[in-house]
């Protein structure tokens, strides 16, 4: 009986030692500072690599005559229409239906056209450079200052027409265009427009266009201050 107790005690000690070793091993392979995605709200996620994903954000203004004003830093809309447009609080305007974009160029740039000083209404001067036939991750650094332009219209949508009736069937969004913005504080933003349909389906159809139009999906990455590094992979 004594012997049996000794064996039982030995078995217990060995098991304890083995489990202890297993625990140590598990702890050793876990990174100490593992980064995780951060969910800001139902439409905004900050990925572990710093990329901000805007997913199926409803387009609030559906008239083409108005603008929805987006702030990269605030990760959301900061105003709609004329009340907010003449401020530097926004970076990128989306024209009503959500397809057409315009960076906040306060109208202050010289040589735009004669008499432009009449419209010098806000101090913003966001500029943009465009890349075609590329991918989001392939753009790893901001271009030289000379590559940036002022523009009043950006659009990556590609209309697809019904081959029988000739009417517009839907818009495609090939993910081959990437923009880099230069913000007022000197930081750079790598940006890709992904979809205007709810859930960002890979292959839009006429039915999806009719049913699920009006939800933005896009992603962007803001560089550190003073850095041109836009690496996201």
């Amino acid at each position: 009986m004594k012997l049996q107790f000794k064996y039982a005690f030995l078995t217990l000690c060995l098991s304890g030692a083995m489990f202890a070793c297993k625990d140590d091993k598990d702890t050793a392979v876990k990174p100490v500072d593992e980064k995780k995605d951060s969910i800001v709200n139902e439409n905004v996620t900050i990925k572990a690599n710093g990329v901000v994903e805007i997913n199926s954000l409803p387009v609030p203004t559906t008239s083409t005559l108005n603008y929805n004003l987006f702030s990269f830093t605030k990760m959301g809309l900061v105003g709609v229409g004329e009340d907010s447009i003449n401020t530097a609080a926004w970076d990128l305007a989306f024209r009503g239906s959500g397809l057409i974009m315009a960076p906040n160029w306060g109208g202050t740039a010289p040589d735009y056209w004669d008499g432009v000083d009449k419209f010098a209404m806000n101090p913003s001067d966001v500029m943009v450079a465009g890349y075609e036939d590329t991918t989001f991750d392939a753009i790893t650094t901001a271009p030289a200052a000379s590559a940036f332009i002022h523009t009043v219209g950006m659009d990556v949508s590609q209309p697809v027409y019904n081959t029988e009736t000739g009417e517009l069937a839907y818009f495609n969004f090939p993910k081959t265009t990437v923009f880099v913005f230069k913000l007022n504080d000197g930081r750079y933003v790598k940006f890709q427009y992904i979809s205007i349909y709810k859930g960002a389906p890979e292959k839009p159809t006429a039915e999806i266009y009719q049913k699920d139009f009006g939800y933005w999906t896009f992603k962007y990455f803001i560089s550190a201050k003073g850095s041109t590094d836009l690496t996201t992979k």
Binding site: L65, Y67, E82, I85, N86, A93, R95, A102, P103, N104, W105, G106, G107, T108, Y112, W113, G115, K118, F119, A120, M121, N122, S124, V152
Partner: peptide
């Protein structure tokens, strides 16, 4: 009223 970016229409 259609202008953007601080007003860019040519008057």
């Amino acid at each position: 009223g259609l202008t953007v970016g601080g007003g860019l229409a040519v008057v």
